[in-house]
Design a protein around this nucleic acid. Structure first.
Length: 562
RNA sequence: GCGCCUGUAGCUCAGCUGGAUAGAGCAACGGACUUCUAAUCCGUAGGUCGCCCGUUCGAAUCGGGCCAGGCGUGCCA
């Protein structure tokens, strides 16, 4: 059992007892219990503010309420001390034996340590990246990729059944523009005079596609009608670009369960069908020759076009069908990760979900703020069409996948992020990620040497953790025991960066502990005392497992040597 | 104009959904390796939590109003 669950079982009955004991009639539900881990260790392992919250309702001073609750509390074999402190906090100090059991739990669970059953098997879909196949991924896509992939890992760890999906916008105007861009480069490479239009894709990768076209078909398409060539070139470009995207994602340790094609959605007639459904529900109307969705009925600020007056369907039309499709696949929760520049799109999608008859809460849209990339202290503008962007590939080659993921995941998604290429490169051996990885390598090193000295490192859970008496050791056990709580918080708030904060904290405590052993022999993990060494190795392995599991959730490797 | 996001140390950012004395990394300065990895550790310095009201036992956190920056505000995607 986790500490919070135990405390809940102790405090809740006491609270009920205290409430009935009071002469002042108290009606209404008891406030939900919350335990916080005090910043100051003198305030115990956990603190509850319940007395402070109840005080005003009961019209009694907080400390008096706290006293009453404390007096109603049953004895517990887990608790060392309960005190009332400050304005009326109830502080709990748990017995060392409890924490020692927690350490054993880490060993017993191994790679599963940190798993919780928050999701209870509910189906969640996360759709992310979904970049148009019109050019390579840039660093902004990388942020969405790292976030989505890590979130998926965290949610699976938290007991959800997760599906990762990439929505492919493989039809529409931009695909024609792509094909035409290739055509211009094709002609150019075949020595025809061309003037490349402004609003087309100028990146070098278009030349690659054009070259491929030449090697496949030579000048066969030179005299063809544009309407004939463009789809062919567009198709080729898409295939090549998509292959590149998949390759980049692969090197970034990001993979998807499903790739969902907009084109197939349309070909299956789902867009038509969904439009018909909304029409039947009277949420669509015609005006100025176009077909409109009455989004304002569902709190959007204006109505939105679904079919343009020229007969073409909008991107939004596909999106309605796509979301309908998502919910028809029985996902309890659908999470969309979008760039913040799409935030204006959220209300209309929520509106459409409501119109389709689904609870809008089942859709959560995560907006990840833009990444501003600095090169030599100067802002690099990001435009796919102008080809002024730094690709994810370049960043991966220069900085590496681990460091890139870690940097992108350390920040809250809704805060803009500054990614300084030179800094990330220059600091590559001072980078925060190495601080974490180094700790893991150190721990592995200790275990390696222990093994050389004859310790059976596979049977460390038979050690006696009771021999661990250094405050740093107790503190480390407590910290790693909190990992499941961190996973929970991270899953509830959909914030992977909490894992990085946790790691930072645990690892710095470990480094300090380790270092104390360099100064005083008795504080080394491997000492003359074999039983003590075994106990410390037990802690070391517990730490290693925790760090490894946490890094895995982030998609960052845990090297055994550095 | 309206909407969303952001504003915390010189810089980059945390701050556990309202708690007790606001933290970390980098940069600066001064120290620590004969030992399980110095990619580490210890110390010094650095703050009007953008500003003003409000809510209450208690606010960086919640609400309102300003100020500043970013993004959005298409029958584009």
């Amino acid at each position: 059992m986790r500490a919070k669950e135990i405390l809940n079982d102790i405090l809740f009955p006491a609270l009920k007892k205290a409430a009935t004991k009071l002469s002042v009639p108290f009606v209404g539900p008891l406030p939900p219990l919350a335990f916080e881990i005090p910043k100051n260790e003198e305030h115990g392992d956990y603190a509850s503010n319940i007395a402070l919250i109840m005080a005003s309702k009961l019209k009694r001073p907080p400390r008096e309420v706290a006293k009453l609750i404390l007096d109603s509390m049953d004895d517990s074999s887990f608790i060392k001390e309960v005190t009332i402190a400050g304005p009326g906090f109830i502080n709990f100090l748990l017995k060392e034996s409890f924490w020692f059991d927690q350490l054993k739990r880490v060993h017993n669970q191994g790679a599963d340590f940190g798993k919780i059953d928050l999701g209870k098997g509910a189906n969640v879909q996360i759709e992310f990246v979904s970049a148009n196949p019109t050019g390579p991924l840039h660093i902004g896509h990388g942020r969405g990729a790292a976030l989505g992939d890590s979130l998926a890992s965290i949610l699976s760890f938290a007991g959800f059944r997760v599906t990762k999906e990439y929505y492919l916008n493989d039809v529409g105007n931009q695909m024609m523009t792509l094909g035409r861009s290739v055509l211009y480069r094709y002609k150019e490479l075949l020595q025809l005079p061309v003037e490349f239009p402004d609003n087309h894709y100028r990146g070098d990768y278009i030349y690659d596609v054009a070259r491929e076209a030449i090697s496949r078909w030579n000048d066969k398409y030179l005299d063809c009608d544009e309407h004939e060539v463009i789809p062919v070139f567009s198709q080729l470009a898409q295939e090549m670009i998509l292959a590149g995207i998949k390759h980049d994602l692969d090197d970034f340790s990001v993979n998807f369960d499903t790739w969902f094609s907009e084109k197939k959605l349309i070909e299956a007639g789902e867009v038509e069908k969904t439009i018909a459904e909304l029409k039947k529900k009277n949420f669509l109307y015609e005006q100025d020759g176009a077909l409109w969705f009455a989004a304002t009925k569902f709190d959007d600020e204006k109505d939105r076009v679904v079919v343009r007056s020229n007969g073409q369907k909008t991107y939004f039309a596909s999106d309605i069908a796509y979301h309908k499709n998502k919910f028809s696949r029985n996902f309890d929760q659908v999470i969309n990760i979008w760039g913040a520049d799409h935030h204006g799109y959220v209300p209309r999608v929520k509106a459409m979900v409501k119109a389709l008859g689904y609870e809008p809460e089942r859709l959560r849209v995560l907006l990840v703020q833009l990444v501003s990339l600095l090169r030599e202290g100067k802002l690099v503008s990001m435009s796919t069409r102008q080809a002024e962007f730094v690709t994810l590939r370049e960043v991966l080659d220069e900085v590496g996948s681990d460091a890139t993921r870690y940097i992108l995941l350390t920040r809250r998604p809704d805060a803009p992020l500054e990614f300084d290429l030179e800094l990330a490169k220059k600091q590559s051996d001072e980078n925060p990620v190495y601080y974490i990885q180094y700790a893991h390598a150190r721990l592995c090193s200790i275990l390696r040497i222990a093994q050389e000295r004859g310790f059976d490192i596979n049977r460390l859970n038979h050690a006696d953790p009771g021999l661990l008496t250094m405050p740093e050791e107790i503190s480390l056990i407590k910290k790693i025991s909190h990992f499941p709580d961190v996973v929970e918080g991270s899953a509830v708030s959909l914030e992977p960066h909490r894992i990085t904060i946790f790691l930072q904290d645990v690892v710095s405590t470990f480094h300090r502990y380790y270092h104390s052993g360099k100064l005083v022999d008795e504080k080394r993990v491997l000492t003359e005392n074999e039983d003590l060494s075994r106990a410390r190795l037990c802690l070391v392995e517990g730490l290693r497992l925790t760090i490894k599991n946490a890094l895995t959730l982030l998609g960052v490797s845990a090297p055994e040597r550095m």
